[in-house]
Computed example of a mutant assay.
Amino acid sequence: MARTTVRAYLNLAILVAGLELLAIGVWFVLEGVRVDQSDDMMVVYICAAAVLASAIWLGGYRPRADEPAERGDDAALRDAQARLDRMDPARLAEHVGELCARDGLAEVATVRVDEDAYAVDVHATRGDGVAAVVRCRAADGPGAVAGGVVEQFVSAVGADREGALILATTAGCFSAKAAGLAAGAGVALLDRAALARWECDKDVPAELASIAGRAD
């Protein structure tokens, strides 16, 4: 934010200096062609240039209150996604468990998934004892998460299980089949971008926010 403000005011200084030099040049040009003008006109030109420069700066160069925060947020999200890309299943589950604990869930624990070498489950409990399960699946490539991953998760936890079911991944997206199966089974999906927003505390998953008693 400080760097942005300094840069904005430097723009103002350059703009004022440039327009005032232009105004002085105009005065000398008019003097050179023998246009009758008093010495006070140079002051008028300089003041007019300063006013014009300020108006231009206010319209397009001054720092807006929301700009520094937005750039900072964007950088934080990019950094979070870069960290997620480097996580293996165990580290991803540890990370998600930390987020669950941060956001008010209790009895947070990680459970290895025998049927999927790329996944580790995070189990957590809300205040009334209802459990949540977050399957944390590290991406095994650039492609979308397939529908079979959702089917495997639903089969493992049981179709009649109560509480929140979430499938979180470091992949960039889910296939159409995966999204359809998840919607039918009541499984929330979090891709890498959603996990990054959660980490940055901008978009806590609704299923966990309600469990933790948080308001979005």
Score class of each variant (00 low, 15 high):
Met1Phe: 10
Met1Ile: 06
Ala2Pro: 11
Arg3Gln: 11
Arg3Tyr: 11
Val6Lys: 13
Ala13Cys: 07
Ile14Asp: 08
Ala23Trp: 06
Ile24His: 03
Gly25Lys: 01
Gly25Pro: 02
Trp27Ala: 06
Phe28Thr: 02
Phe28Ser: 03
Phe28His: 06
Leu30Phe: 07
Leu30Ser: 00
Gly32Phe: 11
Gly32Leu: 11
Val35Glu: 06
Ser38Thr: 07
Asp40Cys: 09
Asp40Phe: 15
Met41Lys: 10
Met41Ser: 12
Tyr45Lys: 01
Tyr45Leu: 14
Ala48Phe: 12
Ala49Glu: 02
Val51Lys: 04
Ile56Thr: 03
Trp57Val: 00
Trp57Ala: 03
Trp57His: 09
Trp57Asp: 08
Leu58Pro: 01
Gly59Asn: 00
Gly60Thr: 06
Gly60Trp: 12
Gly60Asn: 07
Tyr61Gln: 03
Tyr61Gly: 05
Pro63Thr: 07
Arg64Gln: 05
Ala65Glu: 04
Asp66Ile: 14
Arg71Tyr: 15
Gly72Pro: 05
Gly72Trp: 07
Ala76Trp: 03
Leu77Gln: 14
Asp79Thr: 00
Asp79Phe: 03
Asp79Trp: 04
Ala80Lys: 01
Arg83Thr: 09
Arg83Val: 08
Met87Ser: 04
Met87Asn: 03
Pro89Ile: 10
Arg91Ile: 15
His95Cys: 10
Gly97Glu: 01
Ala101Asp: 14
Gly104Lys: 02
Ala109Gly: 06
Val111Pro: 05
Val111Asp: 10
Val113Arg: 05
Val113Ser: 05
Val113Lys: 00
Asp114Gln: 09
Asp114Cys: 00
Tyr118Pro: 01
Val120Met: 06
Ala124Lys: 09
Ala124Gln: 13
Thr125Leu: 01
Arg126Asp: 15
Gly127His: 01
Val130Ala: 09
Ala132Gln: 08
Ala132Pro: 07
Cys136Trp: 04
Cys136Met: 03
Arg137Glu: 12
Arg137His: 07
Arg137Thr: 12
Asp140Ser: 09
Asp140Leu: 13
Pro142Cys: 01
Gly143Arg: 08
Ala144Gly: 02
Ala144Met: 08
Ala144Phe: 03
Ala146Leu: 13
Ala146Thr: 06
Ala146Ile: 06
Gly148Tyr: 13
Glu151Gln: 09
Gln152Val: 03
Val154Tyr: 12
Gly158Cys: 15
Ala159Leu: 11
Asp160Glu: 04
Glu162Met: 13
Gly163Cys: 05
Ala164Arg: 10
Ile166Gly: 12
Ile166Leu: 15
Leu167Tyr: 05
Gly172Phe: 12
Cys173Trp: 11
Ser175Tyr: 01
Lys177Ala: 11
Gly180Thr: 13
Leu181Arg: 08
Ala183Cys: 01
Ala183Gln: 08
Ala183Arg: 07
Gly186Ala: 02
Leu190Gly: 02
Arg192Trp: 02
Arg197His: 11
Arg197Gln: 08
Trp198Val: 04
Lys202Tyr: 09
Asp203Met: 05
Val204Ala: 12
Val204Pro: 14
Val204Met: 11
Pro205Tyr: 13
Ala206Glu: 06
Ala206Leu: 13
Leu208Lys: 05
Ala209Phe: 15
Ala209His: 13
Ser210His: 14
Ile211Ala: 15
Asp216Arg: 07
